[in-house]
Structures are given as structure tokens and as C-alpha cells.
Computed example of a mutant assay.
Amino acid sequence: MDKTVVELFAGVGGFHLGLKKSSDNWNFVWANQWEPSRKAQDAFQCYMQHFGKNEFYINKDIGKIDKEQIPNHNLLVGGFPCQDYSVAATGAQGMQGKKGVLWWEIYNTLKAKNPSFVLLENVDRLLKSPASQRGRDFGVMLACFSQLGYSVEWRVINAAEYGFPQRRRRVFIFAFKDNTKYSRNLIGVEFKDLIHTKGFFQNQFPIHEDIKTSNGIDFNFDSIIDISDNFSFIFKNSGIMSSGNIYTEETIPKYDGEFMLLKDILETDVDEKYYLNGELDKWKAMKGPKKIQRTSKTGHAYTFSEGQIAFPDPIDKPGRTMLTSESSKNRSTHIIEDPQTGRRRKLTPIECERLNGFDDNWTNTGMSERFRYFCMGNALVVGLVEKMGNTLNEIFNNEE
């Protein structure tokens, strides 16, 4: 099978770079990146600078693109926002998702192009959203995949638990057409065995044999609107949806390799502008515990609490999850004690790139330094995609 790829919500190219690190044979036939409400399309320019100017790398709102015009491909990849995926009936127009919700752009691409395989990334709270109807949003996604003839395996992966220098938890969703050789080879395999021995994630991301908890459900529904209105389920960090059934379990990572720590990605001779100087008390206060009395829109009084964040961040552990606000004056920004100078400072843009596994100065392509941090807060860990690429190489080589 040809290793043709379409990348949606491409950002600065984490999926592209990770797959290319696993094999030079991946051919990205189309990619889309668009930053709404921004005049400067910095992430797209970064993507183009690294992967070459290409008429099939598109800088346009995905909602305005005719999905039939996207080239045929065998693998669709992308990281997309966790949003409200509820749907409604709209008379003659049929099912309609909320305007602007980007899942429906993926769904419409799948309907138009029918790729054999799909690999998506999202924040792990997707499995529990929304709070008022736990699991509905992921249930809508699974129903969409099921209607289109896909089975799905998912896994929440904390990059630090597999040796990477950042405690970044994300859910990865691998979907495959039921008529692929890969799918046919799994016929008759128990769902538990699929997760633990024969599935997509187990080779590169091993888990213990022990199961903390598990759950299953018949996944029969009248329509996706039925799922949106009525479905609620507790999805755990691993699972399978196939043939009208869902099985999910809380798995435990098992990793015997080397672990990278925050100190392993630090630069030396860092510029003075990254040091805190006389601001230590303000930073210490921001990172301390808080209990604030608040009132909801309905008049309900409640206590908003925040736990303490280490100040400075320990460098003999993996870093915390990096956010888009990294380097700004807020409690989530990493502050370390520089081992060379003994003084406290922020991370540099290069160190943030290293936390996600990008090459040094990957985002040094003309964008502002602030936006370099923003891009890394949005990015995925490249090494995780490289590992998944190794498995995809085997799958594609075995397809007819």
C-alpha cells in the first residue's frame, strides 16, 4: 500500500516530522494549516520552510475547502481541538454539528476520501467531555467512525512514562477500515488481547498484564443524533470500538528503557533576558496554593482551588505539560534554577522545542519569540509519532 498521507491542522509539522523520522517513504500529498483571526500565518510558514513550498500545502480555512478536491490518500493524520461535538437534526439538511467544530471537518474528509487508516491526537479530557454527559463527545466520534466502516483503538499516552522529557498526556486515536488486511487479521481476537498483545499501540507502548479496571458496552444506536442526545459512558485510558461493541480498560504503562529528564534538554550560557532577576516573590506567590470564593452564573457559591506548583521546577524529573502560555507571567510557566549559574529563569524557545522532540530552532522561521512558545504549547511530542510510524510502516508493508 502506498504511504500517502494527508495532514489536517498541521501546525508546525509534528506529525510530518515524526512519520518522516520513522521512514523517508511517507508521501504527504496534501496538508492544511490555518490560524483563524491571525493575519500572520506563522505556523504555516514554518511548515513550508521545513518541508518545501508545495501547491498541495494549503493555508486556508478547512471549513471552506471542498473535501472532494483533497487528493486520495491512505492515511489521514491530525491534532484537533477538544470542542463540543453535539449534533442536531436540521430538517432537510439532515445532521448538523455545531458551526466551527473542527471534528466535522475530519468527518467530512473521511466521508469524501475514505482513507484506510486514521491517526488523530487530542487532549485526554476528550474521553470525559462534557461534564454534563460524560463520554458523549468521544461517543459521537466513535459513532461517526462506525457509520463509515471503521474500527477504532485509542490510548492515552503520557510521554514521560515512555522515556520522553515532558509529562504530556494526550489521547491518540487509531482508526482502520474494516476491509483492510490489518482488520481482517484481528477477526476473532478478544478485545483484551488486542489491547495487550496484538493491537496498534502495544508494541511501541507496552503495558502491564494487570488491569486496574475495565468496562464494556454494546454500541448500538439509531443515529449519531441519538448518541448526542442520550449516550453517556466512562471511557478509560485504553479501548477498542469494533463490530457494535466498545471495550475499555485502565492500563498501566510498562517501560524498561532510559528516561530523559528536564535537565537533559537544558542549554548552557543562556541569554540574560530569560532570568527572573528581582521578580522572585511575585512568581512564588503565583505558584502557591489558592482558595478563592466565587459565585456561578446561577448564583451558586463555590470555592475555586489551585494546588501548589513547585518553585523552581525540579530538573531531575521530566518537565510538566507545556501550555501555549509558556514564558508569560503565569503559574504554568516553567521556572528552573539554572545548573550553570544557580539563578532562576524561564525555559528558552530551543529548550521548549527539545521538550517536544523538535530540532533546535525549528520554529525560528521569522515568527515572534512569543509565538514560538505558543506553537510548542500546541504541538505534540514528535518521538511518540515516530514510534507510531514504526508500527504504521509494518502495517502498510503488509497491506495488499
Score class of each variant (00 low, 15 high):
R168S: 10
N364Q: 10
E394Q: 15
G307F: 07
K198D: 09
D218N: 14
Q133A: 15
Q83M: 07
D66V: 03
S183C: 12
D2N: 15
S116E: 06
K290I: 07
R170I: 02
V171Q: 03
E7F: 09
L380Q: 02
K177N: 08
G377K: 00
Q41F: 01
F205H: 07
K284G: 10
N230F: 01
L75M: 11
V270S: 00
E161L: 13
A92Q: 14
I309H: 12
T180D: 05
V5W: 00
A92H: 09
H208M: 14
Y274N: 01
A112Q: 04
D229A: 14
F164A: 12
I65H: 06
S238E: 11
L119I: 09
S327E: 13
L384G: 03
S296H: 12
G163T: 03
L76T: 05
E250V: 02
K236N: 13
I106W: 09
K53C: 10
I265R: 00
K181V: 13
M367K: 04
N230W: 03
M376G: 05
E55A: 12
D193V: 02
P130H: 05
Q96V: 10
N220C: 09
K329P: 11
K284Q: 12
D256T: 13
E249K: 00
I173T: 00
I195L: 15
S238D: 13
Q204C: 09
R155E: 15
F358S: 11
T295F: 11
A43P: 07
Q41K: 05
Q96F: 01
S325H: 09
G149F: 02
Y57Q: 11
D359T: 12
